[in-house]
Computed example of a mutant assay.
Amino acid sequence: MKTNTGQFAFLQGSSYEIGQQQAGEFQNNPFAKSLFFTEKLISNNTYFEMKAQIEQYCPGLNKELEGFAEGFGYAPEQLNFYQNAWLIPGGCSLGAILPGKMADGKTYVLRNYDLSPNISDMRLCTTNVEGKYTHTGFSVSTFGRSEGLNDKGLCVAFASCGMPIGNYPGMRPPVVPGLQFMVIVRTLLENCKNVEEAIYTVNNMPIGTNMNLLIADASGDAALIGTYDGVREIKRAELDYLIATNHGLFPTIQEKEPGKLEHSQLRYDILEKKCKENGKRSIDEIQELLLTEFPKGLAVHNYKEGFGTVHSILFNLTDLQLEFSFGSPLQNQVNKIGVGDNFAKTQIPVEFCNKSYGTEFWKIIKS
């Protein structure tokens, strides 16, 4: 068993002030400078292009990055984030269960995020930037977001589609230039109040990542956006649910995808079986998906091979609440927080008990 630490951050103020606040949060970390900054500057042309794209599609983030860098005595162009944001992967299981399927008539989104704890932020944030919608969700590379729910009832959750795209070993270089998922998710949470606005925003931004992006709102609307090597597809919810894992779910993307991990299909099938059954679902049935271990449920404990549950969330869009755990909810406490709220603890111990699922876990099947 390995023990890690989950963190909570309450970020409030102007973009620059939030950047400075986060610099203070990491000041005592002896690895912070090597983690966040580089001594080797990228070219001015590349930096200004990245900065311009972020300013256009996620306004305010540059000021946050500036405040953070200056808090450490560095120039903003030395931040590694600028290289990562323009083009940290993971396996994910996502599902939007809409009011027509729920016994209580509410809208829910469930999300299980599988990754190595060594490269996960393990950090939940409530972020209230002046002039933007407040949201609560987990951070990626500190300044990005992997998912979240905002105070207007819009929920956005990311899952990689196929081999993750990025500038790190083991990832595939981007085929087309564009923003990484972590900037896209944050942009939507801070600037959109419903699914329609989110779709419009995504359709008008450059996307370099391959992803399944699930979007839902408190009115019961939902959509799935799939991107893969420049292809972009959108599916609106035709049933009372919409689900996704880590493989292509559109014919045009499936044609490009060389294969998919069998466990991605198995997790998809688990979600579909529960949602497809006749009758309405209770909240207990939805929670059970997150509280049952793979291959019968969605919780995965394959931490040594970089594919274990680092956080689990059930979003209640109607009531603007999150039930979440750092790490697997089978091994750690499930907590509750309202969107925009502060959390009582800034640090929570997290246990990771590894389990090997054998070589078959990584079996690749035809898309």
Score class of each variant (00 low, 15 high):
P349W: 00
K355P: 09
K345A: 11
V175R: 03
C353R: 07
Q20S: 03
P329W: 03
T5A: 13
E49F: 10
T38N: 10
F307G: 01
M163A: 14
D151G: 04
F326Q: 10
T318K: 06
R232K: 14
R281W: 00
S93Y: 04
I207V: 15
E66V: 10
P295N: 10
L271K: 08
L239W: 00
I234Q: 08
D114C: 06
L124E: 07
E130N: 15
G208M: 13
K336L: 02
R186N: 05
A23I: 07
N44Q: 04
T127C: 14
S43D: 11
F307E: 11
Q53E: 15
G340E: 09
M102Y: 05
Q22C: 13
N84Y: 12
V195D: 01
Q180V: 03
I184D: 03
E277G: 08
G279D: 13
E351V: 15
L41F: 01
E25D: 04
N80L: 12
V140H: 06
A52M: 11
S325D: 04
A9E: 11
P295L: 07
N28F: 09
E64I: 07
K152R: 15
L314M: 11
I119F: 15
G105H: 12
Q265K: 12
F8W: 05
R186H: 03
H247R: 01
A69H: 04
K51T: 05
N342E: 14
E257L: 12
T252N: 08
S312H: 06
A237H: 05
F307Q: 07
N84C: 07
D217M: 03
I42V: 12
E130G: 14
G340K: 09
W86I: 12
L149Q: 05
E288W: 01
L314Q: 04
L320W: 00
N150W: 02
I54T: 15
A75G: 08
Q333W: 02
K274M: 14
I243W: 02
K304R: 10
S116H: 01
C92G: 06
G95N: 03
N4C: 09
E272K: 12
K51W: 04
E64V: 06
N342S: 15
L317S: 00
N204D: 13
T359V: 03
T201K: 07
I54P: 12
L213W: 01
L224V: 08
A52N: 14
I119G: 14
G13Y: 03
M205H: 14
L330N: 09
F68T: 10
S367M: 02
V310W: 04
K260L: 13
F10Q: 08
L317C: 00
L249G: 04
P177A: 13
Y133L: 15
I42P: 11
D104S: 13
Q331L: 13
N80P: 03
G358V: 09
F158E: 13
N332G: 10
G230M: 05
E277D: 12
G259Q: 03
K276M: 11
T292N: 08
R145G: 00
N112E: 08
I97A: 08
K235S: 14
Q347V: 08
Q22E: 14
E70N: 02
S312Q: 07
T346N: 13
D341V: 09
N80C: 09
G208A: 14
Q27D: 11
V109H: 00
G13D: 05
S219M: 05
L291S: 00
F37T: 12
T38Y: 02
P295E: 05
